[in-house]
Each structure stands twice: as structure tokens, then as C-alpha cells.
């Protein structure tokens, strides 16, 4: 089963994304911020990270940058999810190493499709 790590500081959002991902048949784990996500990612393999941008302690950009610098994590696909729809935010996400940028609240089909694609199947 494919494993997904949902990184978001908002409980509600994590719950929502968990529902979406579990309905695709993914196994889901959650992290509240970048640091927790790195810790979890280092002890267990994930097929995809869903990452929020604005988080305490370590935000999404920093998290993805750290991932890309860390040999164990650098190849994991990342979908970054943010409320910001602007070009600059999107560019910043790609620059930091995200593979896809989705504006939140995301279209359900869209998010599910992309998650399934980037994780390499359902």
C-alpha cells in the first residue's frame, strides 16, 4: 500500500486530507510541522508528502528544501497545498523543490488524481 504523509498544522485540514487519501486506499500519517515531518520521513518510507505552506517551527518551503538536501528524502514527490493562488507563491514552491502546487481548498477530484499519479498508483 502506498503511504502518504500529510503535513499541516491545522487539525481540520489534516482530517480532511486524510479522508481524501484514505478513500483512495492510501495509508496516511500526519505531521504538524516541518520538523515533525522530517522526523517521520526519516524513520519510515513515504511515497508522497502533502505539504502545507504556512506552519509553525518549520514551514513548507523550508521542509521541502530540507527534503531535497537529505539523501533519504530527496526523491519523494511533494504536493504543496496553499491558500495562496498567486504566481509568486507557486514559483517559490517549485523553487524550494515541490513537484506540484495545489491551491486550497483543493478540488477533490484534482487533488485525488494528482496524489494518485505522483505517488505512483493507488
Amino acid at each position: 500500500m502506498k503511504k502518504i504523509l500529510i503535513v499541516d498544522d491545522a487539525v481540520t485540514v489534516r482530517m480532511y486530507h486524510r479522508q481524501l487519501m484514505e478513500s483512495l486506499g492510501f495509508e496516511v500519517e500526519e505531521a504538524e510541522n516541518g520538523i515533525e515531518a522530517l522526523e517521520k520521513g526519516l524513520v519510515r518510507h513515504f511515497d508522497l508528502f502533502l505539504v502545507d505552506v504556512n506552519m509553525p517551527k518549520m514551514d513548507g518551503y523550508r521542509l521541502v528544501e530540507e527534503m531535497r538536501k537529505t539523501p533519504e528524502l530527496q526523491a519523494i514527490p511533494v504536493i504543496m497545498i496553499s491558500t495562496e493562488a498567486s504566481e509568486q507563491d507557486m514559483e517559490k514552491a517549485y523553487l524550494s523543490g515541490a513537484n506540484l502546487y495545489v491551491v486550497k481548498p483543493a478540488n477533490v477530484d484534482e487533488l485525488q488524481t494528482y496524489a494518485a499519479l505522483l505517488a505512483g498508483g493507488e
Partner: peptide
Amino acid sequence: SMPCSYELLAGRIASVAKVVKNLLAA
């Protein structure tokens, strides 16, 4: 095609390669 710092480049290529692989597999 975006500019990239040296330390991030390996990760960028690795992750993009992974994504492309997954996309094709899917």
C-alpha cells in the same frame, strides 16, 4: 528549467525523475 542552488539540484532531479516515473507508471 528553474534556477537552482547546487545543494538542491540533486534533490530536484531525483524528485522530478521519481514523479515522471510515477506518472508514466500510472
